[in-house]
Design a protein around this nucleic acid. Sequence first.
DNA 1: CGACATAAGCTTACGGTGTAAGTATATGTC
DNA 2: GACATATACTTACACCGTAAGCTTATGTCG
Lengths: 193, 193
Amino acid sequence: MSASDRGRPRRKRPGLTRERIAEAALELIDSEGLDALSMRAVGQACGVRAMSLYRHVTNKDDLLDAVQAAMVAEMNFAALSGPWLAQLEGAAREFRRVLARHPEAIPLFTRPAATQRAFAAVEQVWQVLVDAGFSQLDALRAFQSLLAFVVGQALWQFTPEGARPVDDEFEFGLGCMLTGLELRLAQADAPPT
Amino acid sequence: MSASDRGRPRRKRPGLTRERIAEAALELIDSEGLDALSMRAVGQACGVRAMSLYRHVTNKDDLLDAVQAAMVAEMNFAALSGPWLAQLEGAAREFRRVLARHPEAIPLFTRPAATQRAFAAVEQVWQVLVDAGFSQLDALRAFQSLLAFVVGQALWQFTPEGARPVDDEFEFGLGCMLTGLELRLAQADAPPT
DNA sequence: CGACATAAGCTTACGGTGTAAGTATATGTC
DNA sequence: GACATATACTTACACCGTAAGCTTATGTCG
């Protein structure tokens, strides 16, 4: 860098932010439903005309990704501790907790989701599996399976409007999945009987 | 009923049918993607203007339900036989086979899906679980868990355009789930050690 | 201080959507 | 042949995502 490096990126009057937009959009989804989410509606919620959003978001899909990221940000995987099974269980429940809080937004987790924040969260849970002794590949498989179950389960359970009384079904499936994983690991650890 | 009960329902010139419409829609989804599915496009595919579809379908959502039903009709659960675990495995794979054939249509299984045909299919697999020894409630839980996994898994695996090389991930998760179920059943059968 | 570059937000416009409402037409029954 | 009715068509409306261009406030620097 020469002497004239003062020209680094400076923010002027943000007013709108990608994050604030996503937040407004999420509130709108919660209150009006995913179908009711339009660029115009989000704009209005931000006190702005629809087209102004495009300064901070490349298109509606990008906005949805941002909303998804906002939801991921609500999850707290940092507090996980204890044996790996308990950690996994905790992660799944934490995920589900956020989904339950935003039932209308669950379909957003249907997309590949290339958000940076999402990726970080994935890696963290993945690491738990690796530390437990799974191969990197199996850890990925296990993670994806668990994720598929949690999201798929939430998709149906929370669809009507309110959740069904309890989450027996979730606990049942989660238990099965975790038991299966445990067994898989045990067998991999001691292949020759 | 008096003597004039001859006015019973008679079909005239169907031409369009709910089933034919759904079929056309499914082909359109396969070739153009789910987002490209519009009432006008479906109409055109049927050689008809968009509004004509509304005689056989109450609205677009209903059409999507019909498409889902068409996909369920492609599944063949009748050939299942053998021990319950194998039957379950077969059902899951059969489900997945159809999803893989219509990757763009997978999100349709995200909805509650109150189709009659879907319900029949559900009941059939559910019966396998009941026959295996699960309580009616546990059978439902097990079924839902499995379904959630299969659909969730397919949602991500088939999203880009083609499926990823193999379905290791699916087999891995399915194996875990089934192992978990097996253990659950065994424990329930012999609770007091 | 004044000129300027830049980014934030605004305006307008276009092609597309789902579908409400009303209209024409072919068909099966008397 | 007359009629009832299901089938398909036409028109119209409000809304959608977003391309293109414009206005205006802001921070920088001569």
